[in-house]
Simulated assay, not measured.
Amino acid sequence: MVEILCIGDELLSGLVLNTNSKWLSKKITRIGGHVNRITIVGDDICAISSAINESLERGIDCLIISGGLGPTPDDKTLEGVSSALGLKLELNEMAVDMMKKSYERLCIDYQLNEFRLKMAMIPKGSMPIQNMVGIAPAVLLEVPSRHRTSSKIFCLPGVPMELEGIISAYVTPILKKHISAKFHVIENTHEIIGVGESMLSPILFKIKNSNLPTSIYVKTHPKGYTIDHKPKLQIQIVSKGEDRKMVQAKYREIFSLLMDEIDKLNGKVIG
């Protein structure tokens, strides 16, 4: 079970669109993980600390935190982690070396003043992760869990390119170790005209009640109306599991059920 914690006043004010959570959710789902919750809090140490402890109380396997690792006063993520876990922040020499490599890679003339070194002040016992795009290292912590042997906490930069690079290079391989390597997913979206959500509700309830949510997911998305006032609908079908043949068979079964129902309701599939 994975949770995502996004940090930043700019997310709460609507100034910045939270694209990181969408990208992360899709990435995690694709490898067979399950995102149980997405939380957004502002740049406040108490709010960050509280959100982390609440996640750990729920017995998560992994918490992915994005944002707040920079050198400015409003970057308070690691202070919040420190507060939540009771771990002192300390200057990590490995993190300092990583920053030096990043500055040199980017051909930036720099001095490691107190503001820059703030990005290398990480919780005691945590492990820095090289940022291959930006400067601030990511951070990995493994903490005791009330419900499991341990929970992993990844603190990642909020800049999308930096976050995505670290996730792909470092985080995904770690997550895959806890998820079956044979996990398969089939996902398709179909455009429908002439059938509204309420008309499909009976078959959707039937599908939901006869399948585990971890294996089948069906979601409808209204898309307005045509010029001649016919409802437009997008249907997303996701089949997932460890047995490829079973995943394929289940997808075909659900697809056939939906297409038969749409045909009965005089709807039309256009894509």
Score class of each variant (00 low, 15 high):
Phe115Leu: 07
Gln248Ile: 11
Gly42Lys: 01
Leu17Phe: 10
Asn18Asp: 14
Ile192Val: 13
Ile45Gln: 07
Gly80Gln: 09
Arg116Gly: 05
Leu56Gln: 03
Glu3Met: 02
Leu106Phe: 12
Thr220Arg: 08
Phe183Tyr: 15
Val185Phe: 07
Ala120Arg: 14
Tyr170Lys: 10
Lys182Glu: 15
Ser239Thr: 05
Asn20His: 10
Phe255Arg: 15
Lys264Pro: 03
Arg30Trp: 02
Gly80Val: 11
Leu63Tyr: 03
Ile31Cys: 05
Pro128Phe: 13
Asn131Met: 09
Ser215Cys: 12
Val41Asn: 05
Pro231Met: 07
Ile31Met: 02
Phe255Asp: 11
Gly86Met: 13
Lys223Ala: 11
Asp260Gly: 11
Met132Tyr: 08
Gly165Thr: 03
Ala249Phe: 14
Asn20Arg: 09
Gly70Val: 04
Val159Thr: 06
Leu89Thr: 09
His178Pro: 02
Tyr103Ser: 02
Glu187Leu: 12
Gly194Trp: 06
Ile48Met: 14
Leu141Pro: 01
Val41Lys: 08
Ser49Ala: 08
Leu156Cys: 04
Asp61Trp: 01
Asp260Leu: 14
Ile135Gly: 03
Cys155Ala: 08
Val195Pro: 04
Glu142Arg: 15
Ala169Cys: 07
Lys88Ser: 15
Gly158Pro: 07
Asp61Ile: 01
Ser13Val: 06
Asn36Trp: 10
Glu54Cys: 04
Ile45Asp: 05
Ser180Pro: 04
Pro213Ser: 10
